[in-house]
Nucleic acid binder design. Structure first.
Lengths: 115, 115
DNA sequence: ATACTTAGTAACAAAAATAATACTATGTAG
DNA sequence: CTACATAGTATTATTTTTGTTACTAAGTAT
């Protein structure tokens, strides 16, 4: 994909990078600072160990988050947003606000979806 | 979804609504005004007829876009953003800008993060 | 020595999203 | 009558994503 980036709509590109099922919430969580793997697990217990690892790996591969391992036992691994990753913050924030708007609206018009 | 909106992170809610593979680009396209089905098809020939229909239906069901049919043959159907749908515009715009940033970056560091 | 800890991997299963294909409707043009 | 146009549906297949389960590593506390 890095060789044909001009061909696709940039909106699509962004979705490709942050569109995983849990990536949005992971990024939202990391906005408030570095987190250990276990902290993320506790925050979203519904996300299994394995899946969380997968999502983190993909974000890491894109350069969005950084992974820091401490050489100790039991292991300690911290995840944080990279400088590049932080450029996503405004989007994540807006998405949070819009989600809230959506939810308010859903509560107000539970049976209609038109405008 | 609509019955347990409080339980999930609003960022997740937003992804649920606009996270389909082609929804972002559809919304981006509709930002510039009402479009016929066929216009959308032509703009993204890679998206098949059927898939485009599906994505449009889902956006319609969420109240993001409106579908207007003209009673004529051959059929004419127009899609446009609802007022509610327009509240997504800032997000889509930011996503477009971020995608461009990402692509520039990918061109600069072609070996650091790929896919 | 054994169990516990945290983070990770591997193999596999299930679900969801996407795609391909063929089919419908109906007025107009030939 | 036949072909064409546009938008839609139905059925099935494929791919992608997500989830489950079981296993590993290695130091510490018991």
């Amino acid at each position: 994909m890095a060789n044909t980036p001009e061909k696709k709509c940039p909106v699509e590109t962004t979705f490709d990078v942050i569109g995983g099922k849990w990536k949005g919430v992971i990024l939202y969580h990391l906005m408030s600072g570095t987190k250990r793997f276990g902290e993320l697990r506790k925050t979203y217990p519904q996300v299994t160990h394995h899946i969380l690892t997968l999502q983190l790996r993909e974000l890491e591969r894109e350069g969005i988050i950084a992974r820091k391992t401490y050489n100790q036992v039991p292991p300690k691994v911290e995840y944080s947003l990279t400088e590049f990753g932080k450029t996503l913050n405004p989007i994540i924030l807006l998405m949070k606000e819009w989600g809230e708007l959506y939810n308010e609206r859903a509560n107000q018009h539970p049976y209609s979806s038109g405008d």
